[in-house]
């Protein structure tokens, strides 16, 4: 069981759904307030969606200076898993933990609807349980989702396989190279615009997002294979 810290900023509004999704995947998930400086021995940190600090100045620009970001940065630098969803992705870019930036949608409109994305990288803590090339239907809900990076950074992202999710069928917001999610060079920090926590059960219209959270537990299972015993083809923790 992974310890998953869900960071709550003033203006976060996907924190409860994210906590539920992580718990549904079997993780020991708990909230960490943005003024806290202790992640309580987290194995993974998730920055949820929302409108931290009212998106003042730029989305994520103020949250990036919250006290908790110092601990999140240390966790990331030590190789710990970090996921930013939507506003969390914007914060990670502002904090310099992910390359690039997210700007106003090309057609200005706030977009809240399902989109199709393809999983381009499965060697991250949050996509390990997907098949590479799998196409998913996940909801987006953002006004500032247009991913931009300078041409050199974009070339590096492509060359290193750091594009994690890519829009297919349509590019809803004008993102460079149809990019919907990226990871850092170390592959432990991931940012995605779609909301997997809103698609993790059939009752929510589909479960294409569930494996984002299940990936954490699956990775843990393979890392600590000695703690597990196969019974009737199922793995049980002992």
């Amino acid at each position: 069981m992974q310890r998953v810290a869900v960071v709550v900023f003033p203006g976060s509004n996907c924190d409860a759904d994210t906590l539920d999704a992580a718990r549904a995947a079997g993780s020991d998930a708990y909230y960490v307030w943005h003024k806290d400086t202790d992640l309580q021995r987290a194995d993974a940190v998730i920055l949820p969606g929302g409108f931290s600090y009212g998106d003042y100045l730029r989305s994520g620009a103020i949250a990036r200076f919250s006290p908790v970001l110092r601990a999140v940065t240390a966790h990331a630098r030590a190789g710990g898993a970090v996921l930013g969803i939507c506003n969390g992705f914007q914060i990670l870019c502002e904090a310099g933990l992910l390359p690039g930036a997210l700007m106003r949608n090309a057609r200005l409109k706030f977009l809240s609807r399902p989109v199709r994305v393809r999983v381009e990288a499965t060697d991250t803590p949050f996509t390990a349980s997907y098949e590479r090339g799998a196409e998913l239907t996940l909801p987006i809900a953002h006004g500032d989702g247009r991913y931009v990076a300078d041409s050199q950074t974009a070339a590096e992202l492509e060359a290193n396989g750091q594009v994690v999710l890519r829009y297919v069928t349509e590019n809803p917001n004008g993102s460079l190279h149809d990019i919907s999610g990226v990871c850092n060079a170390g592959r432990n920090v991931v940012g995605i615009m779609p909301h997997p926590e809103r698609r993790n059960a059939q009752v929510l219209g589909g479960q294409d997002g569930a494996r984002v959270f299940l990936s954490l537990e699956a990775r843990n299972a393979t890392q600590h294979v000695g703690d597990l015993r196969a019974v009737d083809g199922r793995h049980l923790r002992v």
Binding site: L57, R58, A61, F65, C93, E94, G100, A101, M103, V148, A149, D150
Partner: peptide, 8 residues
């Protein structure tokens, strides 16, 4: 450090 994003 804050007021402008060097990327954009």
């Amino acid at each position: 450090r804050l007021l402008a994003n060097p990327v954009t």
